[in-house]
Nucleic acid binder design. Sequence first.
DNA 1: GTCTATACTTCGATAGAC
DNA 2: GTCTATCGAAGTATAGAC
Lengths: 210, 210
Amino acid sequence: MARPARVSPDRILAAAALEFAERGFAGARVDRIARRARVNKAMLYYHFKSKDGLYRTLLRRMFTLAAGRLRAIADASAPHADKVDRVIATMAAFVDEHAFFPAIMLREVADGGAHLDRETLTALAALPAAVGGIVQQGVRARAFRDTPPMFAYFSMLAPVIFYLAGARIRKEIAHLKVVDMRESSTDDFIRHMQHATRRSLARARHARTS
Amino acid sequence: MARPARVSPDRILAAAALEFAERGFAGARVDRIARRARVNKAMLYYHFKSKDGLYRTLLRRMFTLAAGRLRAIADASAPHADKVDRVIATMAAFVDEHAFFPAIMLREVADGGAHLDRETLTALAALPAAVGGIVQQGVRARAFRDTPPMFAYFSMLAPVIFYLAGARIRKEIAHLKVVDMRESSTDDFIRHMQHATRRSLARARHARTS
DNA sequence: GTCTATACTTCGATAGAC
DNA sequence: GTCTATCGAAGTATAGAC
């Protein structure tokens, strides 16, 4: 898959990730992707057939990779609350490696999956499935209060995605100096989300505070 | 503002809201907006000068309206925890009236505010400012645990926006039947977020459970 | 696999009559 | 304020040589 023989497809995917994240599917320009990947545009069509094909390939990869890591947490043996901590930390780490992920995620939600085929949509569905499964484990073991898994999924990951995707606009807003938007560290925010999620899922009084 | 004399601009704005929410700025088509508004395309340019101008006018209105409601909560006299409940309920109600809001919000965050001028960006900044102010009130009154206002802003509103914007893609995913995505009521989700936020901000043990 | 050149389409925007 | 007609710029995609 990452054979040294065919670097073009991988370089194209990397360039596409940046372009799609920055501009969205409609705003992305095939010429720009080709230029960023330092390949000829015809090469891009040779490998991926169309802008749509490239987009879907990229997203399928991305979703599959992320879902795999989440599923690994689900399958591991650990206290339920720790698994939730790991879900949040893992998503943050994933974004750290793939900075384009959150923006693409936001756009895809807003688009209602308009450009996704059945296969890519299935790959995306594996994300809430994995996280929902972890929550369900905890609820069944009576470690968590009874919570719809999808509610927990949204309340723990939406802020992470939103916050990480919003780095640029926060900087713009901070620049206006009309709000106190001083950038605190991403790590602090992740810890905040872990604590908030623990407290939200805890049955009686919340877990340790730090 | 809603004078019967000039219906065109308002109809155009309403049509633009739908189009921009569904397709994003780059994906939106001026012809389609004009057709949806049942006005001539030249009319649209007469009133708004450009696609950009239309977009900014729409967003400025939207942000200003939403921020006004949030500021009203901040200025009201009520227990701090109740204000937080109201922030969440108010955003949900706002989206109920303006269904296009969450999608546009997601896209704008992903875009990093690329199409926004200074004035529109300032209008947007009023949202976190209002919510952050409410949190700060609570922290200073020692009703809430010490929490960076922006962290609280993201953890309480990002899920609401995300969940409401994601109605379409959730339906798509539910249709695949690979995950249990059964649609529970939006009201239930809002209540979930209110409880989760209360628990997250509570100083010692959390507030009432129901 | 790689490139150049270009066909074909769509879109934002405006000119100019009424 | 309103409409028709159209320009010019981009943009996706492909043909065809190497």
